[in-house]
Design a protein around this nucleic acid. Structure first.
Lengths: 165, 165
DNA sequence: TATTGTTATACTCTATAACTATA
DNA sequence: TATAGTTATAGAGTATAACAATA
């Protein structure tokens, strides 16, 4: 019965997560949208974050991290390149591939939006006790380890070689 | 300096949340999409959850909870009504308004998807220790209180009366 | 006149399929 | 032949503006 209890506890955890995370994400999204309109959509913000963390990422790599298809990622990048937020150049070593990187304006906009979201979020957390804040930090640390993308889903630019197998 | 530290701690919390929550949400979304394709999109799932929790909600109420405009909500509901997942009837007391409710198939589909998401999530949490699971439960409880919609954003069907002012 | 909701139109995001270019 | 990416086309979601119906 201890295994059964473990599973029940995991499900209880999962249900709480399903009841809480979407609420927080919508709260942040709504506030950012209220302040900046359609200046930077959630997919665009996400794409910038991936490219920032993986400078020189290929389009396939981005698509995997976006959990979307190549055409979607390609079109998304089109818009970011048109607005000079992302640079897209052909890879010298393999001219089929592209290398993505942030332009200085792209980096600046990403940093500004991220900082603004963090600051907004923190207004909801300031009145918490030290102990409560530490509980959140600890939970985030546990969750991040559990949900971290396995092996970074391949090198930023390298072709896929059975990452899931 | 203690106030400064409190603010810094809140920002650190916020940054961890920004680094963790989107990752989890994308993981769930990608898995659900992998299993069910476009059978039920995230906005549709969210709309069903709001209507389930607030039977008889008006379109305005739904739009507020979706953090979207009335036309978006109207079109979203169009699709759900066309698929017989949601019932939309004119309110007898005020014929300008509509009352939204789940149909039995709508309720069944929502329950199935929610249960599946919870079960999938729980597979990531089963191997955690009791203490780690409790840390997550506690953090979710704290966060949910902080981000709960104030006063439910008005009664489900009632007109807005300066909720933000 | 104010409020609820819909329709018209446009843009972003995503998906599938067909295509190009490179390896 | 296989892989990386783009283009073509279609559908969902959202926004603004204009409109209809009701209060």
């Amino acid at each position: 019965m201890s295994e059964l209890n473990l599973e029940a506890a995991a499900c209880a955890c999962a249900a709480e997560i399903m009841g809480t995370l979407p609420l927080i994400m919508r709260t942040i999204g709504a506030e950012m949208h209220r302040r900046h309109g359609t200046e930077l959509s959630a997919p665009q913000f996400h794409a910038l974050r991936v490219i920032e963390k993986h400078e020189g990422a290929s389009l396939s790599f981005l698509a995997r991290h976006l959990a979307s298809g190549l055409p979607s990622a390609s079109k998304l990048v089109d818009g970011l390149v048109d607005r000079s937020l992302v640079a897209r150049v052909t890879a010298p070593a393999d001219r089929r591939r592209v290398l993505l990187s942030l332009t200085p304006p792209g980096r600046a906009m990403l940093e500004a939006f991220h900082q603004e979201a963090v600051t907004y979020l923190s207004t909801h957390l300031e009145s918490l006790t030290d102990e409560e804040q530490h509980a959140i930090l600890r939970a985030m640390s546990i969750l991040r380890r559990r949900f971290a993308l396995n092996g970074d889903m391949g090198c930023p630019g390298a072709p896929q070689q059975g990452a899931t197998a």
